[in-house]
Write a protein that binds this DNA or RNA. Structure first.
Lengths: 340, 340
DNA sequence: TTGAGTTAGTTAAACGTTTAACCTAGAAAC
DNA sequence: GTTTCTAGGTTAAACGTTTAACTAACTCAA
């Protein structure tokens, strides 16, 4: 059987309360007894029972990570990388992270994840867009929540965000710097704050570089920033303006769709048109040509979220940094080139 | 505060022991009281405290999932998909799964994952190859273990395996059926049982179809089945035998390396040489041409492992199916073609 | 010398379950 | 009509922590 706090107390010749206080390194303990107890702990290879601790403190030591099932299952491991980042983030903490998924269209009659119903988590992290129904439900829960890569329109939440606006800006700036004049934008799900912001960055870059924003250069009515929609959007874009020489796609998935459209229509990338994406997804370097993009540090989003929620759990009135903005980076590969 | 078993007992007019017995649906309870109690449970929205339960039963309700860090970080989400499969597998059970990584070269002085040291799991699942040092350490732990996609040479373990031999067979058979005569095999890390078995399947297919196994058609000395090694191996293979018209790479990573080598050397796939991989990795369909491969059901490996370990935890003397073999499937895409 | 204050540690209740041992009422056996 | 069984429930101890309240010993000012 595993040793208990009793065994440690006996071995160190102190009361179990003292052992407990040492573990929490409470101020009341002298260094002398502290080292004595620590020695006993080490010798017995003692580890406190999480259950016992949880029973009295009403904590679980778990953090729930929630994903919509489409993100869970999707080809590109964007959100799963973020999840792995949270795993990295828990090192050095005493937390474990539990994963669960919810329906993409979660509504009033859906069940919340099991770990919420069973109160098996001390806080929850929600990655990506979630439905208002879902957000409303978890808001009532009186449990710390951190959002990643989505800012619910309904309120003032803790969140870890990608610097989408800046990303959109530097992506567009890159194309401008290469001498392009007719720069297209392809987007989907514009109501999504992330996409919206990338679009905003695009507009800002144009305007602060003396170029005019032109509706004809944009296709933003796709309802989902997916590969097939990228394909369709490319088609529309070239129909709207044949002089396009560069395209900023709101994410890599759409960029890949654009690339497929171009291959199918004998449009050479980067010779005829330059293409830049957003996300820096695994597949990018396998593409032909490898895709220039904006790199999103996915692990970092996860680790930041853990640190943030740790603070919120520790200090219920925490309010220092409610919004953490994670910077992005331009990755130049071979899909962009100077304008002719 | 959450309702406790006491509240339920009071509401249902029974003792807390009765409530507990109802929850475990113990035979001693009549249907009448059972429904009475269940009604109270529902009305109060009661969920038992895992901590309290854990404290007395000495269980945690957690299953640990262990991965080597190279697999965790690698580009292709092979093992992470398996992890997601375990998540799927826990639905309908009362388990949660905790993820942790260990060093690829785990040795005697490395620490075991935190959830093992702290005894926070009732069983552990190890995905992929692990070092003998690691296996030796966890073996002593007296805790149920299930391996996925690796069979430790040292003993008689519970494991969920891919049917590699058959996979190697049908991959090779596919090339034979297309009329190829000089079929190459490219492998790395041959001591790995999975790779070894795929190679065995390759040999079997040749021999049972009246073709002779030829060492000159094989490059198996790479120490790792990675993309760059696939590239190198392709080079070696074509040097050994210029008449090769088809290649079976032991996994998709190496196949992608081969493909790159071919592009670099103006060898057309599938016109000049047919290429088949193994794994059915996300990137395959993005490749040019899309890669014919052997699909391994990654989610299923995970769910099977959960079911297996559940049985082992429940019944310490479980021995029905120590080895579960998950079947594979030939996926024909465009990288294979009839021999000229 | 006294007593107030401080420091370092202890005592004991509490957390919410499970389960072995016990109890009681009615049925069955004679 | 007593005894024995059985079915269906209850009692109470135990699990391993945390922490408020307590205590004993020491310090130090007057």
């Amino acid at each position: 059987m595993s040793p208990t706090i009793k065994d440690v107390a006996k071995k160190a010749g102190v009361s179990i309360a003292t052992v407990s206080l040492v573990i929490q390194n409470h101020a009341r303990i002298t260094t002398a007894t502290k080292t004595k107890v620590q020695k006993a702990i080490k010798e017995l290879n003692y580890h406190p029972s999480r259950s016992a601790k949880g029973l009295v403190t009403k904590t679980t030591g778990n953090i729930g990570f929630i994903l919509t099932d489409d993100h869970f299952l999707q080809t590109e491991p964007f959100y799963t990388k973020i999840f792995l980042g949270t795993e990295l983030g828990t090192r050095g903490t005493n937390y474990y992270v539990l994963l669960a998924t919810i329906a993409r269209d979660f509504n009033i009659k859906d069940d919340l994840p099991r770990f919420i119903l069973e109160r098996s988590v001390d806080g929850i992290i929600v990655a990506g867009k979630a439905t208002p129904d879902f957000i409303e439900r978890i808001e009532k829960l009186d449990i710390p929540i951190v959002f990643i890569d989505y800012y619910p329109p309904s309120g003032n939440f803790f969140t870890v965000l990608i610097d989408n606006t800046n990303g959109g800006y530097i992506a567009t700036k890159h194309l401008i710097d290469l001498g392009h004049k007719e720069i297209g934008f392809i987007g989907g799900d514009l109501p999504h704050p992330s996409i919206y912001d990338r679009f905003a960055g695009y507009k800002q870059a144009l305007e602060s570089n003396g170029m005019k924003f032109n509706k004809k250069n944009c296709v933003i009515d796709e309802d989902d920033p997916s590969r097939p929609n990228g394909y369709n959007a490319a088609k529309k874009l070239f129909n709207q303006n044949k002089k396009i020489t560069a395209i900023f796609a709101c994410n890599d998935a759409m960029a890949i769709g654009v690339m497929q459209y171009c291959t199918d229509n004998k449009i050479k990338i980067p010779n005829d048109v330059s293409l830049i994406g957003f996300d820096d997804v695994e597949a990018d370097i396998l593409l032909n040509p490898p895709l220039t993009t904006i790199k999103v540090p996915k692990f970092e989003l996860g680790t930041e979220a853990i640190h943030l929620i740790e603070n919120v759990i520790k200090d219920k009135s925490y309010h220092n940094k409610k919004k953490i903005l994670v910077p992005v980076e331009l990755i130049i590969r071979n899909s962009t080139k100077e304008a002719k």
